[in-house]
Design a binder for these strands. Structure first.
Lengths: 215, 215
DNA sequence: GTCTATATAGGGATAGAC
DNA sequence: GTCTATCCCTATATAGAC
């Protein structure tokens, strides 16, 4: 009998009738993304969720498991969004424009994610592996072949597709990941910084296309 | 007599005849840069330095002060190097080439610094302020005026100088800051990743110059 | 200056009532 | 499922001998 019950619990989601689990995840997300795995306190997450500390353990057993739930979720969204935006059916140059505009927009709405992921993967490189294991292999295969095609058609200059992908992603992500540094370096207030990012939606794709397009 | 000795110690660097302080800083640097402020353990730093835990407090009073010494040192080197490379006396396009080549080289030799700084500034934005307060104001003024001049001479297309600076720095820093992510995404082993960075010394400056140069 | 031993607090985790 | 109270370990920090 015990075994049957166990199977049932594995098939159906646990705690399905309550939003507490979701509340905890949202609270944990807010705290972990700023303070990180080691800087975050279970007490602060409980306060943020408006519940008791013991509940965190009831739902997620340990801090590490709770963190992992938050991290996996954030990272999977982050990378599946890249794949999604790179897989729209457009010619290469339009696709780059489309990607930059939408990805910068997404990053502006989730501005803590890049630094959060960089931090946690830097401190524990193994964490990234599970993310890619589940979300399928070689996410940028389609985009790489787009680039190769455009090169052979003489639309863009010859370029290592992997270098180009990293250039594109880096140009979008870096200014968000390094937000407080850039604000200080360039003497930006909050509004100026936001305008700066907003401009990048157009500026970065112009920059990239200028760099690779055959005129 | 006691007072005279005290004054002497304040004028000259403390603990001058021993390398212990330096040993501690080096050990702390290694540990903090990977584990971060909250993940690092004083015991581990002591082990790494080959001394006793109590010595850390003797020399630096607290974990926070020790961390701050490490962070300030790392950050100041990091940013003063940017300024130094951007202030060589060369025409803009050559200067960009020179910057990219040397900065990527430096980053390859100090590959933990970018993620370390991004992490700690993300978790505690105030830390970055002291860095810029001491190392002078507006580090990129010269470079910004170089860009404006090149635009007015018709050498490069009109572009927001601040956007261009962030593009240049981002293209160098991002692939190092996101090292484990990129290795996983692009299925790179250690050697492939190093070759990838090595190529960027030339590829990135070609990319940037293509993007901005008037042909 | 360097060590051993210890104080003290903080935080993750659990027990158990309801 | 949710709470209170508490356990217990770990980590920073200090005291004090040498």
């Amino acid at each position: 009998m015990d075994e049957i019950i166990e199977i049932k619990e594995e098939i159906q989601p646990e705690h399905k009738h309550h939003s507490t689990e979701k509340d905890i995840l949202e609270a944990a997300k807010r705290v972990f993304q700023i303070k990180g795995m080691y800087g975050a306190r279970m007490q602060e997450i409980a306060d943020e969720a408006g519940i008791n500390k013991a509940m965190l353990h009831y739902y997620f057993r340990s801090k590490d498991k709770l963190f992992d739930a938050v991290f996996q979720d954030a990272a999977k969204n982050f990378f599946s969004k890249i794949r999604e935006l790179l897989n729209v059916d457009k010619p290469l140059l339009e696709k780059i424009e489309y990607f930059v505009e939408n990805y910068v927009e997404l990053l502006m709405k989730n501005s803590f994610i890049p630094a959060f992921i960089i931090t946690e993967v830097h401190q524990n490189p193994d964490r990234i592996k599970n993310v890619f294991l589940e979300s399928g292999v070689n996410i940028e295969m389609q985009f790489i072949s787009d680039i190769k095609t455009a090169i052979s058609l003489g639309i863009i200059h010859p370029v290592d597709p992997k270098q180009l992908i990293i250039n594109i992603i880096g140009l979008c992500v870096f200014p968000v990941a390094a937000k407080p540094i850039i604000k200080t370096m360039l003497s930006f207030g909050d509004e100026e910084y936001l305008k700066f990012l907003e401009s990048r939606k157009k500026e970065v794709s112009k920059f990239i296309i200028n760099a690779i397009k055959v005129h």
